[in-house]
């Protein structure tokens, strides 16, 4: 018995020692590399997914990390770390406080929403946009037996009485699913302040439109495909600029072609800490571009129903600035901005 315990304690010591040394490793290589023409990571690169395992950020981080390593794009090994909490705020403050060019993170529109809603002190301005990788679009689904057949019919009813329709989504008000609906509805002339929106976690949105507890499900396009195929729900419109490719996807009408001139992109890309040198930025830009162009990543995009949308650091920064302005005005109209 003593032997067993001895064995267990040895394992603990080893584990603890390993944890300790990796902490040290993270904080070292900080000072060097600045101003160099060619920057290369001296330590292992850490991709932070500021959310729990299994979500969109985590999946992106893990698939990109895997390709970086397996396709030999990066010589150093790449690890994915989950820093969950505060809708991303915990991960952001981790990146901000370690301020290490070896630590980068995945983000998407919540990096704009959460600071605008006053839920995080840090915003995109405290970080360096490195590259955008993919785009996803929103879809508005209703039960297959619902009386509406396109967005105009739905919005016509909502213009008469906005409270006659209940919209359900996964995120809380003032974030993704709510805002993508609001931005399209506003263009169509609906009084956005009176829209009834409920938030349902654990994929509850789909069941809620199927059993009639809610009317419209604001979600991502990929989530709707199988239910549409099975004839359970229909999609009234999507937020993309043009129709998407794919078996069922190509049948989804855009809001634009229905005469509502508005789009909404759920972009996803990588960011680094605030002060990064140009060499560091261009290093990541290049590597991420390689990932984006690889066949392996094309497969992953197909599997998840994501669209390619590479932007380099400069384009990305510009894009996010514009988005922040637009969404800020929208949130103010909803009396949600801070």
């Amino acid at each position: 018995m003593k032997k067993l315990f001895f064995f267990i304690s040895i394992i603990f010591v080893v584990v603890l020692a390993a944890c300790g040394s990796s902490e040290n490793g993270e904080s070292s290589g900080d000072s060097e590399g600045e101003g160099n023409e060619d920057w290369k990571p001296e330590n292992n690169v850490e991709i932070v997914a500021p959310a729990g395992a299994g979500g969109g950020w985590d999946t992106t981080a893990r698939s990109v990390g895997k390709i970086l390593e397996e396709e030999d794009i990066m010589d150093k090994s790449v690890g994915v770390v989950n820093k969950e909490g505060g809708g991303g705020a915990v991960g952001w403050s981790y990146i901000n406080s370690t301020n290490n060019p070896h630590n980068i993170f995945v983000s998407s529109p919540p990096l704009i929403f959460i600071p605008l809603n006053g839920q995080s002190e840090l915003s995109y301005e405290d970080f360096t946009p490195l590259a955008n990788m993919i785009a996803d679009y929103g879809a508005f689904a209703v039960d297959a037996d619902a009386k509406w057949n396109d967005l105009n019919e739905l919005f016509e009813d909502m213009k008469k009485d906005p409270s006659s329709v209940t919209v359900v989504g996964t995120s809380s008000p003032g974030s993704m699913d709510h805002m993508q609906f609001v931005s399209i509805a506003k263009k169509a002339g609906v009084d956005i302040k009176k829209i009834k929106y409920v938030s349902a976690q654990d994929a509850g949105g789909m069941t809620q439109i199927m059993n009639g507890s809610a009317d419209v499900y604001s979600t991502g396009v990929a989530e709707t495909v199988e239910q549409v195929k099975a004839g359970e729900v229909k999609v009234l419109g999507i937020t993309a600029e043009e129709r998407l490719d794919g078996e069922v996807l190509s049948e989804y009408p855009t809001a634009k072609e229905q005469g509502i001139d508005a789009t909404f992109v759920n972009w996803r890309g990588f960011f680094g800490p605030g002060d990064m040198t140009d060499a560091q930025v261009s290093f990541y830009e290049e590597k991420l571009k390689e990932v984006s162009e690889s066949d392996a990543f094309a497969d992953i995009r197909d599997n998840y129903g994501w669209n390619e949308m590479y932007m380099n650091s400069e384009e990305y920064t510009e894009f996010i600035k514009k988005q922040t302005e637009e969404l800020g005005t929208l949130l103010e109209e909803l009396d949600m901005g801070q």
């Binding site: 654990d202 069941t207 599997n303």
Partner: peptide, 24 residues
């Protein structure tokens, strides 16, 4: 439709493996 955190992750796994989970 995933009813829990664990099944939601498994749904993601199905997607990676090229299987579309759904009524069909």
């Amino acid at each position: 439709i995933p009813g829990s955190g664990t099944t939601a992750v498994m749904l993601g796994a199905l997607l990676v493996l090229g299987i579309q989970p759904g009524p069909l």
